[in-house]
């Protein structure tokens, strides 16, 4: 010995590895992020097109646009994929940068609540315009 520093951990390698691996829900999160990303490729192009078509529109024009069945369906699909995708992304950001367990949990819960709130607000608004 003779060195000031030494490793004092006496747990086995298996004990250290347990609970640190990918055997939680990593694949589900990863896959859902890719799935929603692929869905958002055509949907975001559709959204960009819609914004150009609705440039300067009044509320009546907005209502006419959403009342078209395809527009209502595509906007609802966009909202679902978008809010799901951003929830998964923001979750990773929070998990990466907030290291205190309590603060991280609070941030994750607050983020999830906000995402659900604004997601429902957007979906309900489209539904109201649709009918």
């Amino acid at each position: 010995m003779g060195n000031a520093k030494s490793i004092k951990i006496m747990r086995s390698s298996l004990g250290r590895a347990r609970g640190l691996g990918s055997a939680k829900s990593g694949v589900g999160h990863w896959w859902a992020q890719r799935l929603t990303a692929i869905a958002l490729l055509p949907l975001s192009l559709y959204f960009v097109l819609s914004v150009l078509l609705l440039d300067g529109a009044n509320q009546a024009a907005m209502q006419r646009y959403m009342a078209e069945p395809w527009n209502g369906v595509l906007f609802l699909a966009l909202i679902f994929a978008l809010f799901h995708h951003l929830r998964l992304g923001l979750q990773v950001v929070i998990e990466d940068y907030i290291h205190t367990e309590a603060k991280r949990l609070a941030a994750l819960l607050a983020m999830r609540a906000a995402v659900v709130f604004f997601g429902i607000l957007a979906a309900l608004s489209v539904l109201k315009l649709t009918f």
């Binding site: 607000l121 957007a122 309900l124 608004s125 489209v126 315009l129």
Partner: peptide
Amino acid sequence: LLSLWLAAAA
């Protein structure tokens, strides 16, 4: 902002 824009329209 998108959801607020849609909510305003609704």
